[in-house]
Design a protein around this nucleic acid. Structure first.
Lengths: 210, 210
DNA sequence: AATTAAATGTTGGACGGTCAACAAACTTTT
DNA sequence: AAAAGTTTGTTGACCGTCCAACATTTAATT
């Protein structure tokens, strides 16, 4: 294969590291700032201040503020989805246990933190008016449902499901959404531990034979 | 999607009636505008345009934009709470049927509409940064829980509850919150009818004896 | 009943403030 | 010294509030 890469024989290692560090700083700062001040309150000045940079630097790494926020949003759910898929494929666990663990993973580190929950709520709310957020969030929830549906399907072989596997999975993630919102707003002094218990109640409810 | 805001026509009436008409117009316009444009997007200009008034009129009826929005928020859940209490007191229905109907009432007219769901989501999201919204929403959810808890308590006499009556009620309204958010954002093409079914699954899950 | 005075309802322009985006200058790395 | 990284100053748009003028309704006076 071509030896054309020799034009890049000057490895700008230090610069590349600096660049990645700055980029990650801005992404992290964007997420935390959105969590604390909401989307509209996440001004360029605040994000950059939190990242330890000056206002103008944002346009050196992202074409505009919107692009930075979208990148932060994607990073938010990519990690969560990867973990869900890993649990779903763990054949050492029973099917129902895998469903439970997927649900529980939404309330434990490294997926759950107050910042992620609050930022997620802010982006979800803003998605009503921003098509980019909307499609990103839509895709993320559909991926989650697509990961859990086969598990509910297998479960329907053993016990009777009250709804279709797809509906059951959708209901579970809707409940998780509600729990995340509650944790983000602190509405009912809910604790992550209680949240997992409520997920279990729902999962068992899906199986009930009346 | 949306054609431009249609303004309400102004009938000429006596001063007191005019005053009430204007006030209600502004309240209604505020709610719809928040639903459509989010809190930050609900500018004085847009609210007043929807109400068929000029920008300056808002300060003649409310001291602040903030005061108008808070009044709109209160009107939003007062009606829902009154209906919940009415159902809870209906001794013609079985206890579990009352719980189901309270849940279902959140997805039927006159409580549910896309505007109310979207506005509720916007206010809930903003409540993380606005103490006034926060206490209003907190009070409203606590009232709802306080209405349903005695019903779950009675239920625990007949069948075994998986959690405490209070926890069961809290979980139900958290699920309803998640469903409202989902309906507001249109994330999963969820229909109100499906939402009531998912509530029933949760309610049955509370009762399950494992 | 007609006229006048006061009160209330209503409008749109002006002001001070905040923001994202842009651009030009400065510093460090290569 | 060229390039990349970084900072600060500037610009134009938009926002909520204030306010002075105008319009309509109500009360008082003749």
């Amino acid at each position: 294969m071509g030896a054309l890469a020799k034009t890049e024989t000057r490895p700008r290692r230090r610069q590349a590291e600096i660049r990645e560090f700055r980029r990650n700083s801005l992404l992290r700062a964007a997420l935390v700032t959105v969590a604390e001040f909401d989307i509209e309150g996440a001004t360029v000045a605040r994000i950059c201040a939190r990242a330890g940079a000056s206002r103008g630097l944002i346009s050196h790494y992202f074409s505009n503020k919107e692009e930075l926020l979208v990148a932060a949003l994607h990073g938010l759910f990519d990690e969560a989805q990867a973990l869900k898929e890993k649990i779903a494929a763990d054949s050492a666990l029973s099917v129902i246990e895998r469903i439970r663990r997927i649900a529980h993973s939404s309330f434990e580190a490294p997926i759950y933190s107050w910042e992620t929950a609050a930022a997620w709520q802010a982006f979800t709310n803003a998605s009503r008016h921003n098509p980019v957020y909307q499609s990103a969030i839509r895709r993320s929830t559909q991926q989650a449902i697509a990961t859990a549906t086969p598990l509910f399907d297998k479960l329907s072989a053993e016990k009777t499901l009250r709804g279709s596997p797809d509906e059951s999975a959708m209901g579970l993630f809707i409940l998780i959404d509600g729990l995340w919102n509650n944790l983000a707003t602190g509405k009912d002094d809910l604790q992550p531990r209680q949240a997992t218990a409520l997920c279990d109640i729902y999962i068992d409810g899906c199986l009930q034979t009346t």
